[in-house]
Design a binder for these strands. Structure first.
Lengths: 220, 220, 220, 220
DNA sequence: AATGAATGAGGTTTCATTCAT
DNA sequence: GATGAATGAAACCTCATTCAT
């Protein structure tokens, strides 16, 4: 009954998914989530749309698969960099170096993770937020390490806020650097680290109360 | 007091445009550019779509009108805040206070200006980038003011990069604060200012490229 | 409310309508019926749309007014030219000269009369067909004049057909001439007259089936 | 045993395109380009609009497919008819016969090719112009064949003009014949050929200067 | 496992035309 | 009498998604 010869393009499921995610990742990175249609993805992967839906269910889930690949890579890279630092005070600088280095080496992953055309709500936004917070947590952990243990609890919120701010600064600087190419990734990382470190170190040395502003009143 | 019911009477052109921009602004802020349809906007205003097109030409231009309102407001607020500062060292703090205060007072404007679902290219992206760079320029100008005049040219790129980074940190912190509500807007502004100031001051006082720095900052 | 839109009554608004028709005529000639919107017309005339509708009822009737101006002019020109011809054999040539001359002198009128974007059915198509047939009738009358009176009735259909064909040839040649400018209007008219005259004269001088074809034209 | 009901089953791409072009061709012929909507076409084919767009891209391209079918048929018919003529002097007559015969046999093709509601600019207009000029070229080639070789260059423009005029005459006569049905297609073709041939033959025998009226100068 | 064929639903935009002042 | 304001209806086109093989 079955006369069809198994074609060479028929791959085991796992392998084909792998291959599909790779191609989709590249396309999403190039065009952004909104602008890349499922037709485009299917054409880029070299399969038909129904297969995409068979494997991933819908566009959102396909993007999630790409996101996972990119996000896991970045988190692992940062975690390793921060973890290797012996001195907690150097953790931020190490993290920034790793961040800029990662983007420099894999701009597609950056594009997927920090795509600005992602749908507002939904699972993707959640997942992106998750990765962002894992990154922030790495920074936050390093910041907390610099505090004496008796002050950690009270400062927790501030530390979280600062880690978010550091991430935001890094993200914006990356975008600017990608757009203008005005300096090297390494220089950008050092510049930002130089600027952030004094303030972060001061916070860990003095009272965390925001109203008590170190350097708040400039003697002149 | 004016207790005007949303009447469906004929309004003068200027008035109806005003009202339309207000309604569209609110809707765009709530749903984002992509998710808000022209039908929705028309329904919110209480008119039909052709009127929208008669007045604004197309969706993009309608959004631009909303953007202008939001962006001009923010830029004006920041410019005023920074301009009022006598001491250049305090400009960043003043700007951050104004930024957080503005968002606190008009969250819709923030949402319109920093909507993440905007189309990638086109006039809107251009305009948004324009506002962002005007904001960054305000910061950059303040940073430059702290430098001795003989070093300004060489530091220009770094100052631009730092102003972008400061904007990014502020933007991220605003998002976090809006999401979590973990502290007041004022506290968030102070926290960020406290953290950034030492590093920014150091940069202007010390030398990435050492040279003799006379004691004071050159007054403008 | 006045419903009838006859344009030939003595109206107090005659002057205004005259002016309106002139402006609309120019616009229709420039852009064609389909591409000229009522908004455009109103702007070109310098009045508001409701006034247009007050005067002419709708777009179709407004165009009809323009059409009348153009068509009457062409018919009058051709009638005069043909009428002045003493020799019936010269009527076709005279008509062609007048036709090309008219178009050369008033291209807008040509454009309105022979616009190719007019709606297929409806009053306009009817009116255009009317003008075309009045033009053809002028030619037909001249052709008939060349026939001995006892053959006129039987040849009537053929004469009608030929007059249509002559009109078609002239129209196509005008379009080509307007498009290419490869020769003067006068030369084009002479060329066509030269080519048509022998055949037309033969038909009037000999049997209606000069080619001696078995399936030839059989008068009924 | 039912042979073949007009099933709505899934057709292979080529077959469905074929069927779609056929249905669209008929509809465009009946209503004209502007009045036939894509919804109408889809309904006529028995599919939904997206399929139409999937296969043809847009309305213009769908029309182009219909145009190609009609135009190629007419050009081929005329080329064959003219090519088979041994005597160049008979080429015009043969072409006219073929033209009227073609329209008689496929009025829809005529309607598609010579639709008067087509958009002014764009690819369709270009393509229609292309077909028109190919038809005119066939006539022009036949006219040139009748000229002695040493006069061909100087007469080129006139020959082009005359071929356009012949096409125009034929086109107008076809329209009239389709509208009135006053004679058979064959009779119309012969009538026009009879009328044109003497003039065309004279031109090839005498001087091409238009001002030099050939064929018996009429006394004035 | 994989596909070609097909669709539902909705989006932006346009235009002739009329209402209410 | 003339205007600015407003609309009904419909056109073209797109995209994520599924059906039948």
């Amino acid at each position: 009954m079955d006369v069809s010869i198994p074609t060479r393009t028929r791959l085991p499921r796992a392998e084909r998914m792998e291959q599909t995610v790779a191609a989709a990742h590249a396309l999403f990175a190039e065009r952004g989530y909104a602008a890349a249609t499922m037709d485009d993805v299917a054409a880029a992967v070299g399969v038909t749309k129904p297969l995409l839906y068979n494997y991933f269910g819908n566009k959102e889930h396909l993007y999630l698969a790409c996101l996972e690949r990119a996000g896991d890579g970045l988190v692992a890279t940062l975690a390793a960099a921060v973890g290797e630092t012996a001195n907690p005070g150097e953790a931020t600088r190490a993290g920034l170096r790793a961040f800029f280095g990662f983007v420099d080496g894999d701009r597609a992953a950056w594009a997927v993770l920090f795509d600005e055309t992602l749908p507002a709500g939904g699972e993707i936004a959640e997942q992106v937020a998750g990765y962002r917070s894992r990154l922030a947590d790495l920074i936050a952990a390093a910041l907390l390490d610099q505090l004496p243990s008796d002050r950690r609890d009270r400062a927790r919120v501030e530390v979280e806020a600062l880690s978010i701010a550091v991430m935001g600064a890094a993200e914006a600087l990356v975008r600017w650097w990608l757009r203008t190419g005005a300096m090297s990734a390494a220089d950008a990382a050092e510049l930002l680290a130089d600027t952030l470190e004094p303030g972060l170190r001061l916070r860990s040395a003095s009272s965390p109360t925001p109203s008590d502003t170190p350097g708040g009143v400039t003697p002149r």
